[in-house]
Design a protein around this nucleic acid. Sequence first.
DNA 1: TCGGGGTGGTTGGGTTGTGCAACCATGGGA
DNA 2: TCCCATGGTTGCACAACCCAACCACCCCGA
Lengths: 137, 137
Amino acid sequence: MHSADAVESIQREMTVFARRARASAGRLHPELSLVSYTLLGHVEESGGCRATDLAAHYALDKSTVSRQVAGLERAGLIERRPDPKDQRVQVLHLTRSGRHILDRVTQSRRAAFRERLTGWPAEDLRRFAEYLVRYNA
Amino acid sequence: MHSADAVESIQREMTVFARRARASAGRLHPELSLVSYTLLGHVEESGGCRATDLAAHYALDKSTVSRQVAGLERAGLIERRPDPKDQRVQVLHLTRSGRHILDRVTQSRRAAFRERLTGWPAEDLRRFAEYLVRYNA
DNA sequence: TCGGGGTGGTTGGGTTGTGCAACCATGGGA
DNA sequence: TCCCATGGTTGCACAACCCAACCACCCCGA
């Protein structure tokens, strides 16, 4: 396989993956869309972040994030705390319920993934993940 | 990095990638969305296929494909030919114009990708593509 | 000190991609 | 000949987006 073909494949397969991921996420966890799940995960990992941070990291319009965040708050999964340093800012944090649901969904997603990746050598998994991170950096 | 973390990363980074791809595709080629481009590419590669084939391969609902195909036909990029073996079937083929646009967009996408992947050893590219194909298989 | 450009966030409006369900037409056996 | 399966279209609803306009607040320089 030449580099040009590899590039072609990467592009196409990523697209296929994304579509399937979204579809199956919707089926498995009606309570938490793939987008919500991703944002929720980011909020947890970051230990409190702003809507703008989410928008920048996921290349989303701030209006999109604003609405997603509103939905998550309405669902009681995150809460907004004022930033004492800057009155414009709302720092997002998971609620107890948000953490709980995130954990449940993560478990179940992980199980599905693991099944899918059964038989992959650990080394390949590691390298696959590393490629993706490097690409998106 | 342990396997569980790798799995987590793969999932997340794929999502990020997909979103960026869609956004940038829309910006670079307003005349051909990412979905259209993908389907068009598949039709060319297969050398004539049915809408149902597309739906199966991309895990899309047949109604979605039907509408996408209708759009591509309206745009003059593909044409439907009756299948002599089965009157229900419409075999999809690229038109001259479809082939032309597909080529142009492919060139430009490839250039963008290549720039992005500058500095990647060919071996890594090859392996990255292989992982993706294996995963989606 | 005050005015203005920059930044965080919300809202209104519109587009696109998608799935589900109901439907039609054709095909292929029992 | 009937009946079910299959390929495809259409109506309907919805989620995720983006852009533009807007408000509130921050901060820097004249």
